[in-house]
């Protein structure tokens, strides 16, 4: 009897070791991937800069032709990509877990579009810039999220109703954006397209500041709710039985996720499908039973970095990152619908 228990205990211990080793390997791999892409972004542009010169430029040496490109063009781009990707990934996965539906990510159910519609109107119609735009984007992101939530509330919020209401709101706001862009002077077109698909073109380091602040504030909020989020993966009833105060947890999680996404949208535009893609990829990587929240943030950062590199360097014309992630995301969404249909997930 005790011999059997011993083998069992040893078995469990071995499995735990194996899983934590796998997690470590995975974390290291993601880190290496991110570092590698950052290195690529920093060294490849119009010309290819050797790594030694990149490091010297970053350290503050003045190398003619190199310092400007690395410090002023490529570094802000990489920083902004990482921060925006983290925000989209974290915010997206929080929504997906909370609503237990991979399709209920903020970019499909109309929350990012609330922010970008507000930002477009603020810029084209009212001529606002900088912090005011970010603030307005955050507020209207929260407002639209609340509106969708309330409109789909009827004897509780059902996932299907929330998604459909979100689709309707998104269609409405999309036409506002299209209208505002069509009215804007044509030389702002390139700038304006950022609000349709998202881009990190023309990034500057000061732009990273609001992102950093929102990641700290709203990220802390989300991390504080991580245990609740874990419990909610098991279903609302189970979570309530485990002691989660559902209303408060939902409100906090939504505030954190929407805030993060809205700020990122205000800076880079709604980088298409990043929030939607990060969660499912992270869940697959992290495996069952592990919280995919942090991993989703890393995946989001990697997606934006890689998408931006592909859009800038590997296609015949230069495309903003949102076009690349949009093109990557669409087939994945179709795959997800087909798969979910087969398993009858919704």
């Amino acid at each position: 009897m005790s011999a059997a228990l011993d083998t069992l205990a040893r078995d469990i211990a071995r499995q735990r070791r194996r899983r934590s080793a796998r997690r470590l390997r995975l974390g290291l791999l993601m880190g290496a991937l991110l570092l590698g892409t950052v290195a690529l972004t920093l060294s490849v542009g119009h010309t290819i800069t050797p790594p030694g010169q990149v490091l010297r430029a970053l350290a503050g040496d003045d190398l003619p032709g190199v310092s400007f490109a690395v410090r002023e063009l490529r570094l802000p781009r990489a920083v902004l990509s990482i921060l925006a990707g983290l925000s989209f990934g974290l915010g997206g996965v929080a929504f997906q877990i909370m609503l237990r539906n991979p399709l209920a990510s903020p970019d499909i159910i109309g929350i990012s579009i609330g922010s970008s519609a507000a930002a477009v109107l603020a810029i084209t119609a009212f001529g606002l810039t900088g912090m005011a735009v970010s603030l307005l984007a955050v507020l209207s992101g929260l407002g639209v999220a609340a509106a969708i939530y309330l409109l789909s509330f009827r004897n509780g919020v059902a996932g299907a109703r929330l998604i459909l209401v979100g689709i309707a709101i998104a269609a409405m706001l999309q036409s506002v954006i299209a209208y505002a862009l069509a009215r804007a002077p044509s030389w702002t077109l390139q700038d304006a397209l950022r609000w349709l698909t998202g881009s990190v073109n023309g990034a500057t380091l000061p732009q990273a500041l609001p992102l950093l602040v929102s990641l700290t504030v709203f990220g802390a909020l989300l991390l504080a709710c991580r245990r609740d989020l874990e419990a909610m993966r098991l279903g609302d009833d189970t979570a309530a039985a485990l002691g989660v105060s559902l209303t408060r947890a939902r409100a906090t999680i939504m505030l954190g996720a929407v805030g993060m996404i809205a700020v990122a949208t205000a800076v880079t535009g709604p980088i298409a499908f990043t929030a939607f893609l990060s969660g499912p990829i992270a869940m697959r990587l992290a495996g069952p039973g592990r919280s995919p929240v942090l991993m989703a943030g890393l995946v989001g950062a990697a997606l934006v970095l890689i998408g931006d590199f592909i859009g800038q360097q590997m296609l015949p014309a230069r495309y903003p990152v949102g076009i690349v992630t949009g093109a990557l995301g669409a087939p994945f969404l179709v795959y997800l619908i087909v798969r979910a249909n087969r398993t009858g997930a919704f």
Partner: peptide
């Protein structure tokens, strides 16, 4: 509706 939305995002991209 979801398939239509997905297609719309893809075509607009």
């Amino acid at each position: 509706a979801l398939a239509g939305t997905a297609t719309m995002v893809a075509t607009s991209s």
